[in-house]
Design a protein around this nucleic acid. Structure first.
Lengths: 257, 257
DNA sequence: TGACTTATATGCGCCATGCATATATGTTGG
DNA sequence: CCAACATATATGCATGGCGCATATAAGTCA
């Protein structure tokens, strides 16, 4: 390994940098536009759903698209994603995380638009409320045509079972969100974002099954979750279910004994 | 779930969109700059190394930084990453993948610069060649101050054991690259990018250990790798090693029997 | 030739998982 | 009030992966 590092690597910037910055002309280079798009996901009945917005403006007016917006010049990316979610779906304070940046030169026919895609997770109750909120907003079931972590675009299916072609590369963004979620289930406490404050083990299992797209072994899932130390019994149980009620749990983040 | 999708969702764009696009003025919004930075990694002797470039321009002239460049207006992101690697390190045809997009408003003092970070993997032989290539280029050992998949910035250590502060948020980018690589080892055939055409099982184990930052059980590693079906014996063995020579393998991607 | 060093093969115990069985505890319908 | 019902919860058992230990193989080097 050949290396010629500086001795000490001391910071060389100071007042000189300040002078330089004062005279810096930011308009020298032509720039692409930067946007964010948000794949909002929820799980219900062992299926994944997303919220789409009908485009009113060109291009691709009339198509269904992810909530999105252009990024403000001094706005953090996550803030832009949260703003898009707030404006288009009326949702605030939900889990949002960066996903992948889609930047193929031809993905938007207007001009070069680089989209920093995010995904967001909410429980079904908040999701339904958000989907009822605005005009031009609708819920779509996500149909994943690939298994495991293969990846690729997914299909958006409306209530009538009709598949819709989405705007731009938004089917790929949704596919990336599902893939990320599947990968994360293996090692991270995902899934709790998709549930309410308290939940039964079976409800948690249904969420995992919705994300993974395959049934899970009940006993093994129970043991694994209870052994993970992430669950905390509330002491309460379901009521009115026509059979033995299940214990309710909440997410109890790694409390040391 | 409330939904009001269109019947059929037919594409509404056509000649109308063409007229619209012809008159579209792309300069309405102020835009951030978009750059790519590339964390080039290699593994040797159970350690990870990266290649850094000494900044000659303001701001932060003199600091060590990842190879990077601004993205051309019609240039794919991966192409920009490959171009940066080619120009700064003389490397072409290596594995490059998008990592994460760093866009905090203050990360570059000049103006808003959003960097789509990538990581690249090469075997030590090509790495050393690249590091010898240019002036103002050096090799640094990566010291990871966190375990598992915790994440966070890493330290760049020169040959003399001296830790250098990197330009901008490049220590975070390197940390994200290590984290990604650790996560990927669990399910994907990573590691082969970091080795030459043929290698012994122990060499492959050293690569995994370098990435994970912890020793691995030799027997278990052997069994797991041989059972994975990803390895193909070359029929050859090491020579001149002062002990029983190990069999050489190559990466044989899932060949059906 | 024999010491030395690492590769390779085999066996054993432990633990997570999948599967089967048994018991517990609510609701619902007589 | 009681029994049927449906699911929750608990327990046992076979299997397979993994960590660990042991034994043998095959080169180099003095």
């Amino acid at each position: 390994m050949t290396g010629r590092p500086l001795n000490g690597g001391a910071a060389l910037d100071g007042d000189d940098d300040a002078h330089f910055l004062a005279s810096y002309d930011a308009s020298v280079f032509e720039r692409p536009s930067v946007a964010v798009d948000v794949a909002l996901l929820t799980a219900s009945g062992g299926e994944l759903f997303t919220l789409l917005v009908r485009r009113r403006d060109r291009p691709q007016a009339g198509r269904w698209a992810l909530p999105g917006t252009f990024v403000g010049l001094a706005e953090p990316l996550e803030a832009a994603a949260a703003r898009a979610l707030e404006k288009k779906a009326g949702l605030a304070g939900v889990f949002v995380e960066q996903l992948y940046t889609f930047g193929a030169p031809g993905r938007d026919p207007r001009t070069r638009v680089i989209s920093v895609a995010h995904y967001a997770l909410v429980d079904p109750a908040r999701f339904v409320e958000a989907a009822r909120g605005g005009e031009g907003v609708a819920t779509f079931k996500i149909s994943v045509p690939w298994g495991g972590e293969a990846g690729g675009p997914v299909r958006a299916v409306d209530e009538g079972g009709c598949v819709h072609a989405l705007a731009f590369d938004h089917a790929d963004i949704l596919g990336a969100a599902v893939k990320r979620l599947r990968g994360k289930l293996n090692y991270a406490p995902v899934g709790f974002e998709l549930l309410g404050d308290s939940f039964t083990l079976l409800e948690l299992q249904r969420v995992h099954e919705a994300v993974l797209g395959r049934p899970l072994n009940k006993d093994s899932f129970r043991r694994r979750m209870l052994a993970s130390g992430l669950l905390e019994p509330t002491g309460q149980s379901e009521t009115g279910v026509g059979h033995r009620p299940a214990s309710l749990y909440r997410f109890g983040g790694a409390v040391a004994p």
